[in-house]
Design a binder for these strands. Structure first.
Lengths: 221, 221
DNA sequence: TGATTGCATATCGCATACATTATACTGATC
DNA sequence: GATCAGTATAATGTATGCGATATGCAATCA
């Protein structure tokens, strides 16, 4: 296994992304190149390049001569992003479900068990969030749809910070591991249309929770 | 109207994008920073920043310490991209169709007439391609789904160069203005599900043509 | 007093120069 | 002749510094 040589720009990308997703940098905040450069002990070049990459991920907006800001999503936009996720993740599942092996199901089940344990133990978002992603990724793993997967990843990054906010707000409780179990069972049964419909439902209901939170915040502001 | 001040990086982005879409730079070709810098009379910094933006658009792939290459799409990937387009454009149409005004229909019809005239006159891709995009964009214009629109734009950029190749190959003839007319009529009739289904069909059939071409090219290589 | 112009400052955009990494080549060893 | 180590070369990655742009404030004028 080759050790990978990370470039400074990559490290900066990860640092800033985490700052945005964790809420350390809030939506709409300006991202000053010089300040970030000093904080991360690099020159402004890797900062600029990192910001450009994050713009591609949709987390940052760049305006010439004015600087970058963390993207701000309205309730309507969050709506759209979750609906896109529902659409595309269902598409992934549709293409993957019939190719999943017994091994895949077992691994998915293991991830789910781990997730339940972690959730019960009140572990941090870093743990539950990662397990959650890995569970979903496992279900889609046989889709062989790299572009769709990348789009889903991008949409997930965009919605993740709002999901985190929601979890914080509701006392750090992750919801719906039951839903996950039901989804997995449906996949095992091989009923593609039912499983996809359930998945869409699952994503859309998460949307509704988060949208409610956002509307409240918009009203306050 | 404020004159917009284009940054060097933006100009470079446009220059390289056009080189890729036009086939001047072919899929898989390496993009040497120094060479591009000299050719476009700028330093390597704006070149690097432009390449990063193009990576976000999916036209370029960046690998640390190895440089950038124009993205290469396998037949399977072209397949995927067109299916995504079909899915997402149908979604846009679904959300837009019932909000389209008589004015919108008239403008779409005008674009279509212009397109037919241009196609009959054998105009360049620059003309027909632009009209084609504007026609589709008009149909989606009331969707109010900015993220979906952006994804569609991105997918279009990725498929455009293959579409251009296909048109070149078949003697510069653009296909299916009839299909466009039928699509517009369906939209006018307000039959959402039929119109969306027809649109999907339209995109998928374009895919099949291009895929055939690509498979032939892969076989030759 | 209110609007407008000009200047000061913060910030960004980009050229130059140097550091680091990957790769092709050379020669030695088996 | 094949393989490997070591080096040379070319390309990328990053720091520094200067010129350009935007923005806020102060001075000026109607």
């Amino acid at each position: 296994m080759a050790i990978e040589h990370k470039t400074r720009t990559q490290l900066v990308v990860e640092a800033i992304r985490e700052k945005i997703l964790s809420g350390d940098i809030k939506a709409g905040d300006p991202l000053r190149q010089a300040a970030l450069a000093e904080e991360l002990n690099v020159s402004r070049i890797p900062i600029r390049e990192a910001l450009l990459q994050l713009e591609g991920e949709g987390l940052v907006e760049f305006e010439a001569h004015k600087g970058a800001t963390a993207t701000e999503l309205s309730a309507a936009q969050v709506d759209e992003i979750f609906e896109l996720r529902a659409l595309l993740e269902a598409e992934l599942l549709k293409h993957s479900i019939h190719k999943l092996t017994e091994q895949d199901f077992a691994e998915a089940q293991a991830l789910l068990n781990e997730l339940e344990t972690a959730a019960a133990a009140g572990d941090s978002y870093l743990t539950t969030g990662t397990l959650n992603s890995r569970f979903h990724a496992k279900l889609y793993s046989r889709a062989e749809r790299p572009h769709t997967e990348e789009l889903v990843n991008m949409l997930n990054k965009n919605s993740e910070r709002y999901a985190r906010m929601h979890i914080m707000q509701s006392g750090g409780v992750d919801r719906a591991p039951d839903g996950h179990q039901e989804l997995l069972d449906l996949c095992r049964s091989g009923n593609s249309s039912k499983a996809c419909a359930f998945l869409q439902e699952h994503i859309v209901s998460a949307k509704d929770d988060i949208k409610a939170l956002l509307l409240k915040m918009e009203a306050e502001a």
